[in-house]
Write a protein that binds this DNA or RNA. Structure first.
Lengths: 126, 126
DNA sequence: TAAGTGTACTATATGATTTAGTACACTGTC
DNA sequence: GACAGTGTACTAAATCATATAGTACACTTA
């Protein structure tokens, strides 16, 4: 399903969260899709079930998943998701910080603009 | 000098690193400026000297500072900094991820473009 | 010499992370 | 009802990162 980096400074459950988020946002996992059960995914990536459960709980808190007791966990439908203003504000701050850092590392405004417009087009056609 | 959030999930030394990076990138701290000594900053923000030292060490590793034994730690001059390709690649990845996440949280391509162009102008004039 | 630097080291306490194991309530199917 | 498969909630233990406390040393400047 995805790869873990045990040497990473990121904790395992965070890596699981990020990986699943990426799969959702890339459209690989679609709304109403059923995720592997906690125990199954834990076997697949050879991690403790508690760790997977922690990741799923976090993903549910962020609105990416919902769970039906006794059935499993599923990808949230877009219409069901509430626009998270706090999350958006946080993302804006991160973006500001990121641009600042690109600048500090020697990238010119024009370069940054090109890079971003490329990224926007690339994803806009997916 | 700056504020710490002890309730944050970010560790203290990481907050110190981020704060100083921001001050440098915003131009508040300029090249050759002398930073507070490890012991002094530790008194100012009421944190253990070891914690400040850890932050300084990390900032030096990232190229923001340099230290002169017996004298203190100083802000690196731009001409002295080597363009860090690994760092830039990492920043590009982060940017891609960030845009993806903005999209997923309901922001349209046009909105994102506006937001980013605003940010680019804002910083470009500073 | 003295005070102020960075640096290194040990020791300790705390918290997050991860694993292990058990248990319970729910849903579906046989 | 029985059963297997779900999510969920615990306790317990091991490990690691973080943070504090304290000491010590080499260097620079005055």
């Amino acid at each position: 399903m995805f790869q873990l980096d045990l040497k990473s400074r990121k904790s395992i459950y965070e890596q699981v969260v990020d990986n699943i988020k990426s799969l959702v946002m890339a459209g690989v996992l679609k709304p109403k899709d059923k995720l592997p059960s906690v125990r199954e995914l834990s076997r697949i990536i050879t991690v403790n079930p508690n760790t997977v459960q922690k990741a799923y709980r976090e993903l549910e808190r962020q609105g990416y998943l919902y769970t039906v007791l006794g059935l499993g966990t599923f990808i949230t439908e877009q219409s069901e998701r509430k626009p998270d203003e706090d999350k958006l504000n946080d993302l804006r701050k991160q973006l500001r910080q990121l641009i600042q850092e690109l600048r500090y590392n020697g990238m010119e405004t024009a370069e940054i603009r090109c890079l971003i417009l490329d990224l926007l087009n690339e994803k806009g056609q997916a």
